[in-house]
Design a protein around this nucleic acid. Structure first.
Lengths: 232, 232
DNA sequence: CTCCCGTAAAATGAATGCAATCCGTGCTTG
DNA sequence: CAAGCACGGATTGCATTCATTTTACGGGAG
């Protein structure tokens, strides 16, 4: 019955774009647990508990853990299972160094390759974010913020760049969650930087945008390290 | 008996450096099969055959396949198993774009952070490579070549940068194997570029080295694309 | 002759079972 | 009394097994 449409879909999907894996929900579920801090850094990953938590057997869960280990979110110890990866200061520094590099290049390429429509879309996101900034609505601000950065990466039109960035950015998501509160001055500064970003994007100033993005991320890094230093 | 030393080892290993996973040999074994072309791009990955090939059950093999999928060497299709990832021209272009970015940054950082000992070591590698170049010993030349690039990355002293580079470089290893023959003119050019690289490294000219590495990789890209276009 | 469909064989994805290893508790011993 | 050790429970890693889907092959209709 459905063999034909399925086969056609498969044929169209097969050539290039990576098809969704069956256990994608499990993967994202575990990622959320790690990012939201339900599993503390350095803590053991309780396979049994997570199995009944997600209603699956240990086999698929272990496969997902292997993937998370490849992504750097957990560490696998022989005969001792998985532990949530820790984020040391130097490791965080190195992560930001590479993430800043990728994002800067993303901005540079975006200025060269972006379409007017995409610029307009980013502009729209920016103003919506600005509105949330004025109303001090932090979660919505953060959401739009990430969408803008993702849109710039997308405009760079390099899937490898995007996925590499996403992979590395995923490792610091947890640290970001921890620093959800923001000093008003820092927030204002971040908003100013976003204003400048939009201006540079409109001018297609790739070098300027690259430099600004790098500085923007360096500031964010300082915020996060600051937040990690002062617990609470 | 060995509980105590093992525990101590684990305690020292546990804090930061990622411990070796138990099935690392299986992973590298599969990688080699893909890179050496024993498994053609786009071909199905025969789980059963590989299981008896490596003498393991399907469970660990499937876990490794998931990891390889996360690395981008294979693609997982729902209910249809794994296929060797294909390397389209545009995908190859995007890969080289990011790899070049990472390697250029590696050179830049290396010039800022490298120790005199490391410089001397790279110099030694370089002259050994030069000797193989003069004798037209391509495999040895390639091996030293990769060692030099790896040494520069190591000198950049950023593990995240190194591992990201290694991950992406691993995806084009297969394409590299295919273009093992080299036109004499191209080879001479590559050797000249390596000479310049060493000079720039000795001068600690980070910007110059970054630019040269990028150009060097762009040339390599052209060689590979050229080799892919002309089969045989 | 070509195309389509129905059935069997094979392969995938997940669950369960089993040997080996690790961790916590209580006991022994100097 | 402290330190080391042995033993039992718990956990890991892998092999095996089972349902579901896909794929290959043969027959029949147009």
């Amino acid at each position: 019955m459905q063999t034909h449409p399925a086969l056609q879909d498969a044929a169209t999907i097969l050539p290039f774009p990576g098809a969704r894996t069956l256990h994608a929900d499990l993967l994202s579920g575990l990622r959320d647990l790690v990012n939201q801090g339900d599993l503390a850094p350095g803590a053991r990953v309780p396979e049994r508990a997570l199995c009944e938590r997600f209603g699956v057997s240990r086999t698929p869960l272990r496969e997902v853990l292997k993937v998370l280990a490849a992504e750097g979110l957990v560490e696998l110890l022989p005969n001792r299972g998985a532990r949530i990866a820790t984020l040391g200061d130097d490791h965080l520094f190195h992560l930001f160094e590479v993430i800043g590099l990728l994002e800067a290049e993303g901005g540079r390429l975006a200025c060269a390759r972006i379409t007017p429509d995409a610029v307009a879309e980013i502009q729209g996101l920016h103003y919506r974010m600005y509105a949330h900034f004025l109303r001090h609505e932090l979660p919505e601000y953060f959401a739009l913020n990430q969408q803008i950065h993702a849109a710039i990466l997308t405009a760079a039109a390099n899937p490898v760049l995007s996925s590499s960035f996403a992979s590395l950015a995923g490792r610091i998501t947890r640290a970001r969650y921890m620093s959800n509160r923001m000093h008003p001055a820092r927030w204002q500064q971040a908003m100013d930087e976003h204003e400048a970003m939009l201006a540079l994007l409109l001018q297609r100033d790739g070098e300027g945008l690259a430099a600004l993005l790098r500085q923007h991320l360096a500031n964010k890094r300082d915020i996060i390290i600051e937040a990690m230093a002062t617990p609470g």
